[in-house]
């Protein structure tokens, strides 16, 4: 009899939990939210193990599920904030070289202040290092639209980073 992937998941739980939680916490920055998304990730994983074909349960796979949950979260947030966002947040594009070494704490603060769509694009592309076509798939946009979004997101990030006083 084939091992039950559901129980394989439970066996992997102790090892996978810090990885999934660490991935999420570093990207969403808030403990409660990271916990919620971690729970969502593992419960979705339980569902997935009951489907055919059963996924190969691994830490990498779970981090992938977590990435989906994070994008879903930002999508919800984006939907809630749409209309509230100020026009001034849409920064003019400027593509001049920008080579400042980035301050990690400041990066975190700047990302947290960006709109969810910009934050999602930058996180997937740069923090996770996904190629643009994969980012596009996660965001359910075309590659072309994703490239345009990334350009705007980078501009917004630079603008916020350059005006950010640094973490208080």
């Amino acid at each position: 009899m084939a091992p039950d992937p559901g129980f394989a998941l439970l066996e992997l739980y102790d090892a996978a939990l810090p990885q999934v939680y660490g991935y999420l916490l570093a990207r969403c920055g808030r403990r409660e939210l990271a916990e919620d998304l971690t729970a969502e990730t593992f419960l979705a994983a339980v569902d997935a193990t009951r489907r055919v074909p059963t996924p190969a349960v691994s830490v990498a796979w779970l981090v992938g599920v977590a990435r989906h949950k994070l994008v879903d979260h930002w999508r919800r947030q984006e939907r809630e904030q749409r209309g509230l966002r100020l026009a001034s947040q849409d920064c003019p594009e400027h593509d001049d070289p920008w080579g400042a070494a980035l301050d990690a704490l400041r990066v975190e603060a700047v990302l947290a202040a960006l709109g969810p769509h910009h934050r999602a694009a930058l996180t997937l592309r740069y923090l996770d290092g996904l190629p643009v076509p994969q980012v596009a798939k996660h965001l359910r946009r075309t590659v072309h639209a994703t490239e345009a979004l990334l350009t705007r997101a980078r501009a917004a990030f630079r603008h916020a980073y350059d005006t950010e006083e640094g973490p208080r």
Binding site: P18, W98, Y126
Partner: peptide, 20 residues
Amino acid sequence: DPFDALRLPVTPVTPDPRFA
């Protein structure tokens, strides 16, 4: 790409044991 500096490998973090 200067943005490559944003790369953030997964660093395990142990959550609150009660949550776990």
